[in-house]
Design a protein around this nucleic acid. Structure first.
Lengths: 191, 191, 191, 191
DNA sequence: CATGAATGAGAGTTCATTCAT
DNA sequence: GATGAATGAACTCTCATTCAT
């Protein structure tokens, strides 16, 4: 596939992404994508065989924050509290963002369309739990935090965020509610 | 509708419930239901116009635990801790149960099939948060718990449970993990 | 399926038969049948899942002459020669008929569309060979024919007829040629 | 077309031939050929416009035995019986060979894909009948054979062989069956 | 009330064929 | 000459929904 093919693939992925954000996973068909991209039926099938395949590709390309890559971009002399604060800010942004892929993502993994392919949702959760646990552990070592088990505390933060994300999809979650919850968890870490 | 009609409706609801548990929401069609019920196509449409309508009805009939109705069934002289303990046990059971409607329920609200109808997921969450908050408040008043804001603490418990439920659907959650999280939250309430 | 359903099935089979005779097997699509029958797409699929299924059904219903059922309809006191003569006349008619199913039939079995279903072409050939062999044997016993092996002679007649049928499909076979061949074989049986 | 072009054409023809032998005529598409040859779509269309065109070309190039070219390769002083014997051996080999073009060849002429082009099957049959008839006639003249009409006898042999070939495609034909039939015809020629 | 045959819109998928590069 | 991305027509198949009986 030449540069032109890459561009077309890019077009398909970007356009589909918009559709998935707007309509979720199951409500988007190959036909919808063909029409929105203004390409031919056959043209789409040159690059992708199904909406699942397209969606997987989009998920792979989707940038995502972790505390690990967060540490690389914050100031060298930042305290652990500062880093965790930034991380929770990012989570908050994700929870409150109305239009992104999280809707389609949950739907995708729930409707069983991910048969036979790696479960990115699970993998990322585990990576995230590891990284966050390390961060909290360091905070404890430095005396910034007090906690008996950094792994459980890390998972607790992630489960609350998951809960908030889900709640934001199926009903409405105010910024205030998110702030309250994040503060509450924060409180559980302070001396 | 006579008694005969009621019976048919019952049949449809029970049979569909099995299908929804097994295949989720979107993967069940009116055709599937007709075939599994062994009734006529027209017969189904006499009672329900769509799978959404059937699903809504099932959700309405679905029994669910809340701390309020829990208080009615526990011993009069139970401590608040005992009641909350029972409640969390019930949540744990729900999280770890593989085959029930929670899968289809999330899918239903996520795929936007609930257009124009009351969002039961949201309503119940709010009711639950209220009841749980009252319970915790009473626990604080009685000196069993220590906490600054019973509403936030209540929501925290519910968000963690939501997060665990979601995680149990998209990947795997061990009983140990659930125990850890519930203990962790419990710890946040103790003096 | 009620009487109405049977009628519809009949309509589909008769219409498809015409199409198969005219265009062969592979050139007829489910769409063609739907259009020629003037029924709906879904309507056709209620009765048949594929052109193969329709074709098989047609073949099953197709009347066919064998010497066995020929014996039942000829006069009681006919000589074996007379019966064989009638049989060869029938074969001749089949060979020279331009528009019937034989075209589609060979195509069907040749294009491998009969995967997993009984090979009627083969079964009938064998039945036919048996019956014809019996007939010749009786002719030999009665002194009408002279031959060393009635089975081989029977097969010989059938193979020549097959050869003529094929030739009549891929090129042109004159009535004279058929007469010559039938006479030639006849000669091989006479004292 | 240069030498390079000739080579490409050769490649296309040889590769397609394999495909036709394996899958028959109708089941091979231009796409299949392009992929198996590992050439470009456009590249194929430079040389051939359709699978029919390719198939015709293959048939033209296909070597085939006739009694005429057989006479050239047998010993000068062979008896006619010996020549006919060799010829029938060759036919037998053709009938029993599972994987060659005969399958696709019948399919091709039967599915009407040879519209507007010369019918090689027919031409060759006629050539063959002529040559075989001459051979038998010579045998009669030399006193090796006894027969009233060499043309009819020749055609008889060919029709039986055709019948056997068809039977070998749609069902199964044992070597024994072929031997029996060839002997039977042979018997019809002997004094 | 109840039936189930019938409809037709729409999704998926494949390929012959073209044409700008 | 050669390429291969792109097109679009054609076909298969499924379901929600209706309606005569």
């Amino acid at each position: 596939m030449g540069a032109k093919g890459e561009k077309k693939k890019e077009l398909i992925l970007n356009t589909s992404r918009d559709l998935f954000i707007k309509y979720g996973f199951k409500n988007v068909t190959m036909k919808d994508i063909v029409e929105k991209c203004e390409i031919s039926r056959g043209g789409l099938y040159l690059y992708f065989q199904s909406t699942s395949e397209i969606f997987e590709e989009i998920l792979k390309n989707e940038p995502y924050f972790t505390c690990r890559n967060l540490r690389k971009i914050v100031k060298k002399d930042s305290s652990i509290s500062e880093i965790l604060g930034s991380y929770l800010e990012e989570q908050k942004r994700e929870i409150l963002t109305l239009y992104d892929l999280k809707y389609a993502k949950y739907e995708y993994y729930m409707s069983g369309s991910n048969k036979g392919s790696e479960n990115i949702l699970k993998t990322r959760f585990e990576e995230e739990a590891d990284a966050l646990s390390d961060l909290i552990k360091e905070g404890i070592d430095r005396g910034e935090f007090v906690n008996d088990d950094s792994v459980i505390a890390a998972k607790n933060i992630l489960y609350v965020c998951e809960g908030l994300k889900i709640a934001s999809l199926t009903s409405v979650v105010s910024e205030e509610t998110v702030n309250e919850q994040l503060s509450y968890m924060w409180g559980g870490l302070l001396p």
